[in-house]
């Protein structure tokens, strides 16, 4: 049984058909990348699974139980944490408060403390800035905070939507190191990434989306070798770099 099993998911925004029947599977410990052009429906897919967007039809099951169209606050309770596009830090809350907000569903205070410690170990930078307002952090720091906050609910699956967006290039590698590390801790990751090159290097399995449909899926190594994908998404015309 797959950890997360999505079948034929359809979403409409008014008359626009944003997802036209998407299927996707995540196994325990997977690191899956979702690539595709802007407007292909990647964010919509994450949002439809995490309950932010209402789906028209399809099935979504997590550990064999349907979570299709459940409220987002219920889905995070079942173990899927969605780190939204643009980081969405609570700008007027301190770094630490943002992290506590991430642990909202956990009532065991000792466990929250442990998770907080873990975040600070993972991101020492955040420990330094724990009292600072979220809005005052740099883009990279905000992204770390967003990821750390997503981890505070101690989820089984972490959704990451464009973790490299708007971040200084030197920090991007750093962020991806963290993500790999988180995956190594046993968290299953489903990540949208505009930087397809990078995404297909760090992830193990990849899906390619185009206008609301999955067009390709394969192990990342295989996708990296696929000529069509190389031309369309990796910005490569000739030999691999």
């Amino acid at each position: 049984m797959a950890l997360l099993d999505v079948k034929d998911l359809v979403v409409h925004y008014g008359k626009i058909n944003a997802l036209k029947g998407v299927s996707l599977r995540l196994e325990q410990g997977d690191f899956v990348a979702l690539i595709g052009a802007n407007g292909a429906g990647k964010t919509t897919l994450l949002c439809a699974i995490s309950g932010v967007v209402h789906a028209t039809s399809g099935t979504v099951s997590f550990r064999g139980k349907s979570i299709f169209n459940h409220a987002s606050e219920a889905i995070v309770r079942s173990g899927i944490s969605h780190v939204p596009e643009g980081r969405k830090i609570f700008s007027e809350l301190s770094v630490e408060e943002n992290l506590y907000a991430g642990a909202y569903i956990i009532s065991d205070k000792a466990r929250v403390k442990d998770l907080l410690e873990r975040s600070y170990q993972l991101f020492p930078r955040l420990a330094e800035r724990r009292k600072k307002e979220g809005g005052t952090l740099s883009g990279g720091e905000q992204q770390m905070l967003a990821i750390a906050r997503g981890l505070m609910s101690d989820p089984d699956i972490l959704f990451l939507d464009e973790p490299s967006l708007g971040i200084a290039p030197i920090l991007v590698d750093k962020i991806f190191e963290f993500i790999v590390q988180i995956n190594a801790m046993g968290k299953t990751i489903l990540m949208i990434e505009q930087n397809a090159n990078l995404a297909l290097q760090v992830a193990r399995y990849g899906y390619v989306m185009e206008t609301g449909k999955i067009t390709h899926e394969a192990a990342c190594a295989e996708l990296r070798e696929d000529d069509a994908i190389r031309r369309a998404y990796l910005g490569v015309t000739g030999a691999t770099t």
Partner: peptide, 24 residues
């Protein structure tokens, strides 16, 4: 308090707050 944190978080950004499991 946790409730107070939720009130502030919801006031700032209710969509993201609901992703944290807060019942908006």
């Amino acid at each position: 308090t946790k409730v107070g944190l939720a009130v502030r978080a919801v006031a700032l950004d209710y969509r993201t707050a609901s992703l944290m499991g807060m019942k908006v």
